[in-house]
Design a protein around this nucleic acid. Structure first.
Lengths: 192, 192
DNA sequence: TGCATTTATTGAACTTGTTCAATGCTTTTC
DNA sequence: GAAAAGCATTGAACAAGTTCAATAAATGCA
């Protein structure tokens, strides 16, 4: 399970075996059952985690009670509420397991320790945050410029695990109603 | 002008005077006239810059020729196409000065040099990217959950410099037409 | 297995936002 | 300082997406 973590890290930076071992030893494996929450609104996010196996949805509930999905985290994705975790603020997000899952988690103190002792780790997270940053910009542009139909098509192409997601969850990611997802599906199945 | 850069850096990290001097000496001042471009689509972004004075719009043009504004960068904001700059890829963005502006810019080689020689700088950019990351997540949620009216109100509250922006530019940020911005304005002026 | 609950589909009426076109108003620009 | 170009406003017709309600299908659970 820690193996998945090592492989993920190796994708971003090169690092000595010793440092890799030491850094990875700061993580703890965590099993999360389907429908359990890693984080709820109002809590302070105490972890940053790599999904070794499973599927999570990271979402927000607005003042009208409507859910917006920020992203789905599947195998090899990182999950946390970065704002809550780094700044110790109460979270405005929920992180729920959609399947039985395995995550490698590190707490704040250990991560700060790593930042101080391993410059490579600072670099690792800078690079990862930068990549996410680019993806978020891309999504903002897409949300501004594309219709729901286009975003739906993009989504099912980009998220191969969409099979296991309900219309409701896809709708909450696209920012439309689940009824409309249904109508898009129908339209597409009728050869557009 | 380099003074603005130093103040910006000091807001994020604590750093010795010596390191601050050395790092800042890697930047060059650049004057940009209104309507000039710092970057155009297709170019490789060769700089990362702090706006010491002025106003820029960072935008994308989609396949239908419609502009989407990613953000407006005013005094004390950073501007770059992070994807193009860090990965040497052709940019899909335009960065245009909306006023005569002054920017402190650093190139890729010098920034990489700084990353290697000053661990604090790695930290600086990790922290800044993280903050932007949080803001981008916030905007995605807002775009998914709020109506154009609400986003317009949020916008004019959050961007005090909106006075100098045309309806077209605001519309391109909100993802609506400039005609509709006009209609929102009218509705709001008539006591909602 | 069977019942209860959630999820998906569909339609009709509605709301939000777009498109196009016409008109007046500001800026540029020479 | 006049002509041209771009910008803002408004209305009417339209398209995209929502809401509500009714029904069917799938899933969870005892």
């Amino acid at each position: 399970m820690i193996e998945a973590l090592k492989q993920n890290i190796a994708k971003h930076i090169s690092i000595s075996d010793k440092e890799m071992e030491e850094f990875c030893s700061l993580f703890k494996p965590k099993l999360v059952k389907k429908k359990d929450y890693l984080l709820r609104e109002g809590e302070i996010c105490s972890f940053e985690g790599l999904v070794a196996e499973g599927l999570f949805r990271v979402y927000h509930i607005d003042r009208n009670g409507i859910e917006q999905v920020l992203y789905f985290a599947t195998t090899d994705w990182w999950v946390t509420d970065i704002d809550s975790f780094t700044n110790g603020k109460p979270s405005s997000l929920f992180i729920e397991a959609l399947e039985d899952s395995k995550v490698c988690v590190i707490n704040k103190a250990d991560k700060d320790f790593a930042y101080e002792h391993y410059p490579k780790i600072e670099k690792l997270f800078r690079i990862m945050t930068q990549k996410t940053h680019v993806a978020l910009q891309r999504r903002i542009i897409d949300n501004l410029s594309k219709t729901a139909d286009e975003r739906y098509l993009d989504f099912i192409q980009k998220y191969p695990h969409h099979q296991s997601l309900s219309n409701k969850q896809i709708a909450a990611y696209l920012g439309i109603t689940h009824e409309f997802v249904s109508k898009i599906r129908k339209k597409l199945s009728q050869g557009k």
